[in-house]
């Protein structure tokens, strides 16, 4: 039984609610999912394509980076753009045949594609080292992380959590992405995306190559998926297939819907709320076993998703006029 959340297993002991190490980890988690869901927001909230394979891009990004760096000695910083390009390449390969399909078929095709990627990662031992995964790709990052830590110490904060540099970088990436995506969404290019979301045929009748725009949108999602994959890998220090269960995409959707559709800042709100609540639950003393509490957390996730869709389909903070779901 795999519990992707335990992936982010917090090795720290957190007796106090104010444990800064603990909240740094939660912050990285929230940032990772904000990055992850920014691409989903472009797909679902602004283009109307229901990408259920986002975790596949995350896997491709993380594995490409790890394999290039740890197995082939490629410079870590160079491996990042290459991995993003590989993820985009996969996005195009998956999108070319499947974006022509009806929305429901597309959803199933993408989830199947992402699962195929995970199964290959699990079984292609020569390439991915199978279930054991890949280690030792983060030396370059660690030295950068150390210098950031030193810099902060010099500023006068002496007990910096060791993950604090990653926290900073994660959120800088998230904010830059969100600002960038929001701006690009307000251009004529973004307007075409929204038109496709509203009515693809109308857009085509006005001379827009809807298919090409949908592919571009998917490429953006692949990019944010890969970026989230990098952060995940640096956070865990290893890359294993079990981290890339379909569940991760579903959590991405919860983040998306909690914050509301058709608003990039929503993913920040959604991710912060979700992870604060899920991780904050650890402080509620329950007379239950570890497994039961883990199960309870996911049950809550399910209830949140059902409740949102039943009562607030535009998301907790979404605009009613730009409601994308329902009719």
């Amino acid at each position: 039984m795999s519990d992707p959340l335990s992936a982010f297993h917090l090795a720290v002991s957190f007796s106090a609610f104010t444990d800064i190490d603990f909240w740094t980890s939660v912050g990285i988690l929230a940032g990772t999912y904000a990055i992850f869901a920014t691409g989903l927001q472009m797909n679902v909230g602004f283009t109307g394509i229901f990408n259920f394979g986002q975790v596949g891009f995350m896997a491709i990004g993380a594995y490409s980076m790890a394999i290039l760096t740890a197995e082939h000695g490629v410079n870590f910083w160079l491996s990042l753009p290459i991995s993003i390009l590989i993820a985009i390449g996969f996005g195009l390969i998956i999108g070319l045949p499947s974006l022509r399909l009806r929305a429901d078929y597309f959803a199933i095709a993408t989830i199947a594609a992402a699962e195929a990627i995970r199964l290959v990662a699990l079984n292609a031992r020569d390439l991915t080292n199978g279930p054991q995964g890949i280690f030792g790709f983060d030396n370059s990052w660690n030295s950068v992380s150390d210098s950031i830590e030193e810099f902060i110490v010099d500023l006068g904060w002496t007990d910096v959590p060791s993950l604090f540099p990653l926290f900073l970088v994660t959120w800088v990436v998230a904010i830059v992405l969100i600002v960038g995506f929001s701006r690009i969404q307000r251009t004529p290019w973004g307007r075409v995306l929204r038109a496709i979301r509203e009515d693809e045929d109308a857009a085509r009748a006005l001379g827009k190559n809807a298919f090409s725009y949908k592919l571009q949108s998917l490429a953006f999602a692949a990019t944010t998926g890969a970026l989230a994959g990098f952060v995940l890998a640096l956070n865990l220090k290893f890359v294993v297939p079990d981290e890339f269960q379909p569940l991760v995409t579903f959590i991405g959707y919860v983040v998306l819907l909690l914050g509301g559709l058709a608003n990039y800042w929503g993913v920040v709100v959604g991710s912060v709320i979700l992870w604060t609540v899920l991780e904050g639950m650890r402080f509620v003393e329950l007379p239950l076993s570890e497994t039961k509490i883990a199960a309870l957390r996911f049950m809550i996730l399910g209830v949140v998703l059902i409740g949102l869709m039943a009562f607030r389909p535009q998301g907790a903070f979404g605009k009613r006029e730009e409601m994308v779901l329902g009719d």
Partner: peptide, 26 residues
């Protein structure tokens, strides 16, 4: 009855799937 859209229902079934699966795990 409320005329829910396709994605809305899909996501509800995903939520339900969580609830049942982890209910069983519980």
């Amino acid at each position: 009855g409320r005329g829910a859209g396709m994605l809305q229902l899909v996501l509800m079934t995903i939520g339900l799937s969580f609830l049942l699966r982890y209910g069983i795990q519980f």
